[in-house]
Each structure stands twice: as structure tokens, then as C-alpha cells.
């Protein structure tokens, strides 16, 4: 097994997430994936050790020995071409995927972690916009009072005031995205993960999101990690770029321009 470690000078910053020797594998073959799933499940049921640290036939390392720190008071962009491992890394760091080897440790007083993937999942077409705010808020682990406190902000930020009591099924796709994004961004998270969250086409709303994120996450004890292919806004939004290729970290730099240039080399 190889490993990729990239240390960065970070005086006076708290390592809010420490990733050490991280490995994650997947199977290329659907049938093999099913078979391994049954095997692993059976072993787990009887308390036996699964073969998580070795590759079986048709498996490959999606992440291979990654070590890195994510610091507070920073917005970090994970860049890489398709299949480089950035979505897998962000999902492992946010706890959505289990790692096969290594560790991910949150430091400091982390109470709330929000992951923005498949932003519209969980919204229900027959419920009104307002009812969906309560539903999605409950999915994010908020109580009724907490959601009630965020309600005015969400409605105003999403710009769907006129339709807030209409069924979501009547909303346009853009309105649904704005509502779902506003719910997620309204939450006072300590760590936020966003995977390709800004692929929508409303430039005004996108700018409002970026302004809000800068205001919220460039603070002590907070961190934002996001993946994107859109390099236009990276310079404005990010403090650091981590570049991945074939499941390994290629570079990690606070010189955002340099990070973007290097990323573009891999895109060719």
C-alpha cells in the first residue's frame, strides 16, 4: 500500500479534522459487490473480522493512504478530475462512507456537521414549502423550535416567499434547489461538507450563498470543505486547495492560484 501525506504550515489554526492513513475501496463488478456485501454482513453478524484491508478480486482503492488536516477558519476546496476520489474523500470525512483503513478524527467542540449532497433528496412534492422546511430540518436533526427560529431567514434567503404555502410539486426545479439550499445553509454547523453543491444556474442566488458561506465559515472553530469542477469562484471563496488524482493527494496549497493551475494540468 502506498500513502500520500501533505503537510501545510498552519500556525495558530486548529486542525478541526485529522485524516490519517485513509483507505477506501470499491468493487468494479456489481455481482462481486453483492457477494462481498453478503460475506461482510455475515461476518459482521457473527463478530468476525472482514477483509477490509486487502483487495479482493475486482476491487480497487478509491482512496489510498491519504493523510491530511482540515483547519478551522478556512474554506478548503477539493479539486480533481472525475474519479480522482474527491467525492469519496468528502463522504468518508463526513461519515457517510465507512473507511476500510485509517482514521478520521474531529477535534474541538464539534456539535453539528452538515453534509450537502443530493440537496433535493427528502423534499416531498405534496407538502408545501413551509412543511418541507420542517421536514428537511427534522432530517438535519433540528427540533421544531430551532426550525421555527430559522423559518423567516430560509423563506427570505430562498426567495420563494410568494409560494411558501403552495405544494412543492408546483415549484420550478430552481426554486426547489433554492429552498433546499437555504435550509441547509441556515443551519449553524461547525463543519459543512458540500459536494458539487453549486451546479445550479442562478448566478444571483449562487453569489448570496458564497457571501453567506464566507461570513459563516471563515471563523474560529468552523470549517467548510467542498468539491467542485467550477474553478471560477474558487479564488474568491477558498483559502486552500487540495488536489487529488487516482485516490491520492497530489498537492495541498494555500496559494489558490497555484492549486488551480496545477488542477488544470490534470484536466488536459
Amino acid at each position: 500500500m502506498n500513502s500520500s501525506t501533505h503537510k501545510i504550515d498552519s500556525k495558530d489554526r486548529l486542525s478541526i479534522i485529522n485524516v490519517d492513513g485513509l483507505y477506501k475501496k470499491f468493487s468494479k463488478d456489481l455481482k462481486a459487490n453483492m457477494l462481498y456485501g453478503i460475506q461482510d454482513l455475515s461476518k459482521a453478524f457473527f463478530g468476525m473480522k472482514t477483509n477490509s484491508e486487502v483487495l479482493r478480486k475486482s476491487e480497487f482503492w478509491a482512496l489510498e493512504g491519504l493523510s491530511l488536516d482540515i483547519y478551522d477558519n478556512e474554506i478548503t476546496a477539493l479539486l480533481g478530475t472525475n474519479g480522482s476520489g474527491k467525492t469519496t474523500l468528502i463522504r468518508v470525512m463526513s461519515g457517510i462512507y465507512e473507511m476500510d483503513k485509517g482514521s478520521v478524527v474531529y477535534n474541538g467542540a464539534i456539535k453539528k456537521v452538515v453534509s450537502i449532497f443530493a440537496i433535493k433528496s427528502g423534499l416531498h412534492p405534496t407538502l408545501t414549502g413551509r412543511e418541507n422546511i420542517y421536514l428537511k430540518g427534522a432530517f438535519y436533526g433540528l427540533s421544531k423550535d430551532e426550525i421555527g427560529g430559522l423559518m423567516d431567514f430560509i423563506i427570505e434567503f430562498s426567495g420563494v416567499q410568494e409560494f411558501i404555502d403552495a405544494p412543492l410539486g408546483n415549484y420550478s426545479s430552481g426554486m426547489k434547489t433554492r429552498l433546499a439550499m437555504s435550509i441547509a445553509l441556515s443551519i449553524d454547523a461547525d463543519i459543512m461538507f458540500i459536494d458539487e453543491g453549486f451546479s445550479f444556474s442562478d448566478p444571483g442566488f449562487k453569489q448570496r450563498c458564497f457571501d453567506l458561506l464566507i461570513n459563516k465559515y471563515k471563523r474560529k472553530g468552523k470549517a467548510l470543505i467542498y468539491t467542485t469542477h467550477q474553478i471560477g469562484k474558487i479564488k474568491e471563496l477558498c483559502d486552500r486547495v487540495i488536489l487529488l488524482n487516482e485516490g491520492k493527494i497530489v498537492s495541498s496549497t494555500r496559494d489558490v492560484n497555484k492549486g488551480v493551475v496545477e488542477y488544470l494540468k490534470y484536466c488536459k
Binding site: S52, V104, V105, K111, V113
Partner: peptide, 10 residues
């Protein structure tokens, strides 16, 4: 191998 990832829910 390990992690301490997880939201605290009330």
C-alpha cells in the same frame, strides 16, 4: 481504524 464522526441529536 476508527473515527469519532457523528452529530449529537437531542
Amino acid at each position: 481504524m476508527g473515527n469519532n464522526i457523528g452529530n449529537k441529536t437531542s
